[in-house]
């Protein structure tokens, strides 16, 4: 069974994105293990002159390194991913490279109708940067709109259509992860490239 890291892309205690991640963990318990991780303790990213990253980021990087894939649930603030998430991803690509060729599934929940569509496309672009070089599952989007009304008291998604869509995407992700393990011919090179994107070169 695959082991995934589920990143809650916010430090908001009441976020429905955490609820979504908890649902994923519970609902797919028979298909994969999802270890939910928080990023709220990480400081705002800055270029640490000695190239050190916070211990919590180090730990997280190690977990991602060991995992078969990563699921991210992102809110949307100001048409983009929250600073706390982009900051975490910056730490996770600052002289560490756990995301290189790592399969990633992006999800997101929002109170409004659009379900974080803009944040997700920005997150895709971020994960595609050479420093991160993740393998984001293509042609897939899980946008949970009106998220405050989406869960019942047990934390389960209510709308069967939504569950069906998520089931389909998750089944696809399992296959995507499986095939991804075979796409290894460039992984060594990609890791080297990521390490070569010297942060000092990409400006302070």
């Amino acid at each position: 069974m695959y082991h995934f890291i589920g990143i809650v892309g916010t430090n908001d205690k009441k976020s429905t994105n955490r609820q979504l991640m908890q649902y994923l963990k519970k609902h797919y318990a028979g298909k994969a293990t999802v270890e939910i991780v928080e990023i709220g303790d990480l400081p705002i990213f800055y270029k640490e002159p000695e190239h050190r990253i916070p211990a919590a980021a180090e730990k997280l990087a190690h977990k991602i390194e060991e995992a078969d894939g990563v699921v991210i649930a992102t809110p949307e603030y100001d048409h983009a991913v929250p600073a706390v998430l982009s900051s975490a991803l910056a730490w996770l690509s600052y002289f560490v490279h756990p995301f290189v060729d790592k399969p990633v599934m992006i999800t997101g929940a929002s109170y409004g109708a659009l379900g974080t569509s803009r944040a997700q496309s920005q997150l895709r672009q971020i994960l595609d940067s050479p420093e991160l070089h993740a393998r984001v599952m293509p042609s897939s989007e899980f946008l949970l709109g009106h998220s405050l009304q989406a869960f019942d008291e047990n934390g389960d998604l209510i709308d069967p259509e939504v569950i069906k869509q998520l089931d389909g995407l998750f089944a696809d992700f399992l296959i995507f992860v499986k095939y991804s393990t075979k796409l290894t011919h460039t992984t060594e090179q990609n890791k080297k490239d990521a390490a070569n994107v010297n942060w000092q070169q990409s400006d302070h």
């Binding site: 600073a83 982009s86 690509s93 920005q122 940067s129 990409s202």
Partner: peptide, 20 residues
Amino acid sequence: TPEHNHTTTPALKNVIEWLS
């Protein structure tokens, strides 16, 4: 703005979140 990971810096985005 500098560019981090194909986007603006978390620090600047963070400021804008407070200011919105």
